[in-house]
């Protein structure tokens, strides 16, 4: 299973959101990217968590400064509204783009257009899921805006439109370090034809193992656990490989 370092950025800092609200500064994105690369991370996700909320443009300079001196995939999200935004991101060092707010709240065809131009494998759709009685609702703008959309229906639509990967975040669990919303990840995984990246809630390696065994996502995205040096990437990978009884390197 891939282990992804997720950098939630409120420029110029990587921050740790608590329930997508309170923020603590964790370091600079370029430094943390290089640190996790050295630890053996499989991918780096850079998420500008306030771009959509503040309704401002993408801060390309800082992204470009981050995309240096590491040679694993670099996915960038936050505030992407147009194909031009994506083209520019690829030209400064991104390998994938991550879309949520604009596609969910304004124009879902952004997914189709992106997949058609860049190929599905480069288009990640991010979901911020809020748990209600018996279902989950899609949120946006860093967990602040409701959409009225059912998560399981939306991920189906996103895949049909060409999403090549699904990043599943939980508004309830994010930043709490109290474990994943395992039901959410499992339900999405069961319906997904494309790879699923599980995020939000890892406070220990045990949380990751428990979720991975139950929900079997294709990748896990980790933030706080790494930012607080509670463990390093290599330790997570070794433990997952042993627990999931698979070859450390084999793609599931």
């Amino acid at each position: 299973m891939r282990v992804i370092a997720k950098l939630d950025v409120k420029p110029p800092h990587v921050v740790k959101p608590v329930h997508f609200e309170g923020l603590r500064k964790m370091g600079r994105p370029d430094e943390l990217a290089r640190k996790y690369y050295a630890q053996g991370v499989d991918e780096i996700f850079y998420m500008d968590i306030v771009a959509s909320l503040y309704q401002r443009g993408i801060l390309f300079e800082q992204i470009e400064a981050t995309a240096q001196e590491f040679f694993v995939p670099f996915a960038v999200g936050g505030g992407i509204r147009t194909i031009d935004d994506m083209t520019r991101l690829f030209h400064i060092g991104a390998d994938k783009v991550v879309i949520n707010t604009h596609a969910l709240q304004h124009d879902a065809s952004l997914i189709d257009r992106a997949a058609r131009l860049f190929g599905a494998q480069s288009v990640v759709v991010s979901v911020e899921a809020k748990r209600w009685q018996g279902y989950w609702e899609c949120y946006s703008d860093c967990g602040r805006e409701r959409s009225g959309r059912d998560v399981l229906e939306w991920v189906q639509e996103a895949q049909e439109r060409g999403a090549g990967e699904l990043l599943i975040q939980s508004v309830d669990q994010d930043g709490r370090q109290a474990g994943f919303d395992i039901d959410l990840i499992g339900e999405v995984k069961q319906r997904a034809q494309v790879p699923v990246v599980a995020a939000s809630g890892a406070g220990s390696v045990e949380h990751i193992v428990e979720m991975a065994k139950a929900a079997r996502p294709d990748a896990v995205a980790v933030a706080s656990l790494l930012h607080y040096d509670l463990c390093d990437v290599a330790a997570i990978k070794t433990r997952l490989a042993a627990e999931l009884n698979q070859d450390a390197g084999q793609v599931a």
Partner: peptide
Amino acid sequence: KAPVPHIGFNR
């Protein structure tokens, strides 16, 4: 039998 796109490190 696995998800497509094929994404990740492989031998």
